[in-house]
Design a binder for these strands. Structure first.
Lengths: 214, 214
DNA sequence: GCGGGTTCTGGACTTTTTGTCCAGTCTGGA
DNA sequence: TCCAGACTGGACAAAAAGTCCAGAACCCGC
């Protein structure tokens, strides 16, 4: 099953439109590759992201590992290029009219630009060094520390030396952050604020009932 | 320094153009607030994100604590609204011609839409089902629903019809997610699982002490 | 339908946390 | 020095969290 006239493989002729359409749709960020599972070589490639061309080895040694008994579509799974680009790939076994595998299609999408864009977006207007809370959720006491720490940094006033107003403000933030919905949080906050539990509840009551004050 | 004609505070007249410009620029996702540091109340507000209006208390009890010897611009720092929106805020002390503080400007930017957009982008073409915990925010009852819902979808078994094993599995996940560190969570879980509180504690005890059984 | 084992229930009860109160102490300023 | 406001420690009441258990319900093989 070598090449027919002028190196144009009939399989390429058959699948080219699909491949080209996909390549056009996914713009410059996806390459579409048609492999020959017999010879393990590239039949044709659109939008190549590396320097591979028709006739080159597939670099996908796993082609012949495709389980004929399984589904014919694989992925999406992740690949890593030598230069660090992160790809999302899907592949599919293409069969001829006699239902015999004739080619393998791979679509490799470069997610790097998307991830960069995502990073730009989430960095926009971001306060400090993003993610003060990757730990967070699990460790709510971290969250308490973080809120208090932020306040101290903002005002330059350490926990000792805090005025009543400071404490009210901090407790307000903690309350907004729903810290007190967590069991056992109140005593921890009291400790962190160097204040008695009574005081915490007192200030909290004051914060939560502004109606009776005005 | 009361109001001049028609309740229009001269400070508001003075700063309004800036505030309005910023509010327009940052579209619907930022609110601009002008505070009166004397009375600790809102002078004017553009694009309000909560129901505050002129005359309402500032909720920033720390306004008059702003250290005059320090810089006049604070932030950006992060705030959390009760409904879970994540804000980035900056504030600035505005001074009159005699260099006396006359108002405090706060700009609160709602980063939620940006973060959602970022999530969309980085999810595009992503290999696996990234994000085992999509919402994970304020509303822990949502989280409970989500964990249970996910399990039901995975197994195709609705909450009624669940076996003991299912319940154990679900409780295991909830426990891992630290749901029971939240006050009042246990009864809610019991309700969601259509099971009595006793049962929840029973299963939980079983989960947490496998050592004494094996 | 009939045991018989397992699991769940409702409610009583204990323990732990939470929230409130108050008399006494501390502190900073007139 | 005295006063007023703020904090403390501890007592106490109220509310959740956990435990326990007798009985109901359920499931399953017979």
């Amino acid at each position: 099953m070598g090449n027919v006239e002028e190196g144009r493989d009939p399989r390429v002729a058959m699948w080219a439109p699909v491949c080209q359409a996909v390549a056009l749709l996914l713009g410059p960020y996806a390459e579409v590759v048609l492999h020959d599972p017999e010879t393990d070589r590239v039949l044709e490639i659109w939008n190549p992201m590396t320097s591979r061309g028709p006739g080159d080895p597939s670099l996908l040694g796993e082609l012949d590992e495709l389980d004929p008994s399984a589904r014919d579509v694989y992925g999406p799974y992740e690949k890593l290029l030598a230069d660090g680009r992160r790809l999302t790939s899907v592949s599919a076994v293409l069969r001829d009219t006699r239902d015999r595998p004739s080619a393998v299609l791979c679509i490799n999408l470069d997610r790097t630009p998307l991830e960069q864009a995502a990073a730009v977006l989430s960095a926009f207007g971001a306060p400090t060094v993003q993610r003060p809370e990757p730990l967070f959720e699990q460790d709510w006491s971290e969250r308490i520390q973080h809120v208090i720490g932020t306040y101290v940094r903002e005002t330059g006033r350490p926990v000792e030396r805090m005025t009543r107003q400071d404490r009210l403000a901090v407790l307000g933030r903690l309350d907004e952050a729903r810290v007190f919905a967590v069991r056992r949080a109140a005593p921890v906050v009291a400790g962190a604020l160097r204040v008695s539990r009574s005081t915490v509840y007192g200030l909290l009551a004051e914060l939560r009932a502004p109606s009776a004050k005005d």
